[in-house]
Amino acid sequence: MNFQGAWTLGHIRFMLEGFAVTLQVAVIAIILSFILGTLIGVLRYTRLPIVSPILAVIVETLRNLPLLLIIMFVYLALPELGIRLGVFYSAVVGLTVFEMAMISEIVRGGLMSVDKGQTEAARASGMTYTQTLWHIVLPQALVKMIPPTVSQFISLLKDTSLAVAIALPELMHNSQIIYNGNPSYINPILLLAALFYFVTNFLLSQVALLLERRLRY
């Protein structure tokens, strides 16, 4: 182990550059997958004819594939169909569609867990299906969704490291470059990378706890 040689300013800066890419990919994928996943989850919950069954097939397919395969598919197979996204957006798209499927299941489960009496009370007062969903069911489901959603986002942030397979210059990729030149750097560099991931995800889960406490009624 060579801490002094490994933890130089240049190396740390190179790793931070990688971590910046990690965060960019993660943040974009989190936002997009949350929006799309919520939409899909709500649509599946409403049991619209045609739309809901199609979405069910898409979600089940995505959930049962390895994320690595999806990323490879977007990066290597889509170009053959004329869609060339480049490394960065291949990672974003791959992560987004996979996490979107996961989030949609969390949303659907959250909606279904709201007591049926709530819907009945709202409908009995003359509110429409949409008003009931928006004012009564969705707000209650959201609170229940926070913990599983956050752990899904934490998974997402960690899973950005899979994009190392398509040579996205994110944290793991840059770490590899540093220690590939010198095996005695492996331990210190991996330790530092672990610290980056841990601190970020730990903060994320703390924010979630605060949010959950704030929203509880």
């Binding site: 007591d115 009496g117 709530q118 009945e120 009370a121 709202a122 707000p139 209650q140 009624y217």
Partner: peptide, 9 residues
């Protein structure tokens, strides 16, 4: 209703 079904939020 029997179980009131007030909106808890």
């Amino acid at each position: 209703f029997q179980h009131f079904n007030l909106y808890p939020h």
